[in-house]
Design a binder for these strands. Structure first.
Length: 280
DNA sequence: GACCAGGTATTGC
DNA sequence: GCAATACATGGT
């Protein structure tokens, strides 16, 4: 492992545990790769490396300065505290389920991903499986992203994807999602939608704005809010969450509260990766 | 070779 | 409004 920058070691609140395995392999991001002893991925045009073995109470990473890593892993947030908050609004069997989900997910952190990358990644995710989502994202990076070094590429800019057009994107085998990606790129490049304005809006208003993009509905908009805009209350409801609501709560929808997005990720992780034992 | 995949837009009642 | 259906492609 060749590392050009010094290790960054950041303190986590309440002696939180950081699990790279759970954080990078829970379906929230599609461009981090598992190596023998680490997880690696491109963030802000640099390669970030996180050793699998992490010390309790800290985050150790390589490749960028403290600010970038602190922001990406949201190191100011106490997941110990959030866990307590989530449980406080449930009782009985519901509480036991959330306790179990939080326990198996211990160490998972919701990443503060790049807004534009999250938007395109989750547009690609619709009616798609995770291995193919990763492949599609990888392909657009290799074809249209800035080359950082050998076989390392940045996520392509909105301008680059717009310039690629239908012809270019169709070569990436994105299927019906090509037109959705182009509409997103158009709205960003034209300024019709801008990240800074979304950031100022309430979560509900930001969601409505995101849904003006062709191909962005409730679920994708919620993913962008949660993973790309740091809105921990946003709850993406996909087929797995619908199944969980019916199976355990005997309801079609469940209010997961102020930290619903994180509760959702815990439940999703428990059901899909632990109970159903799905890989990837 | 079906059936399905971290959905959404469109259509039909 | 709300339940079907098409959508591109390839993983399982």
């Amino acid at each position: 492992m060749i590392l050009t920058k010094d290790a960054v070691k950041l303190t986590l609140p309440d002696s939180d545990v950081f699990s790279p395995d759970k954080s990078f392999n829970c379906g929230q991001c599609f461009r981090f790769e598992q190596k023998a002893d680490s997880w690696q991925g491109v963030v802000k045009n640099t390669l970030l490396v996180f050793p699998k073995n992490q010390e309790k109470g800290f985050v150790t990473g390589f490749g960028a300065d403290e600010g970038v890593i602190a922001n990406f892993l949201d190191t100011k947030t106490s997941y110990t505290e959030i866990g307590k908050n989530i449980l406080s609004s449930f009782s009985g069997a519901d509480r036991e389920l959330l306790e179990k989900a939080a326990l198996v997910s211990q160490g998972m952190r919701i990443l503060r991903q790049d807004f534009w990358e999250a938007l395109i990644s989750f547009i690609i995710s619709q009616n798609n499986n995770i291995p193919r989502i990763k492949k599609n994202v990888q392909t657009i990076c290799e074809k249209f992203g800035e080359r950082i070094s050998d076989s390392l590429y940045a996520f392509p800019t909105p301008e680059a994807l717009l310039f690629a057009g239908k012809t270019g994107l169709d070569e990436c085998r994105l299927g019906f999602r090509t037109k959705y990606i182009l509409d997103a790129a158009e709205k960003i490049v034209s300024g019709e939608i801008c990240e800074e304005e979304l950031f100022e809006k309430s979560t509900e208003e930001a969601k409505q704005t995101l849904k003006t993009i062709h191909g962005v509905g409730e679920k994708v908009a919620s993913c962008v809010l949660l993973y790309g805009l740091g809105r921990h209350s946003a709850v993406p409801v996909d087929v797995w969450m619908k199944k969980i609501f019916r199976k355990y709560f005997n309801k079609d929808t469940v209010d997961l509260g102020e930290w619903g997005g994180i509760a959702q990720q815990y439940l999703f992780f428990l059901e899909r990766f632990i109970i159903e034992g799905k890989k990837v």
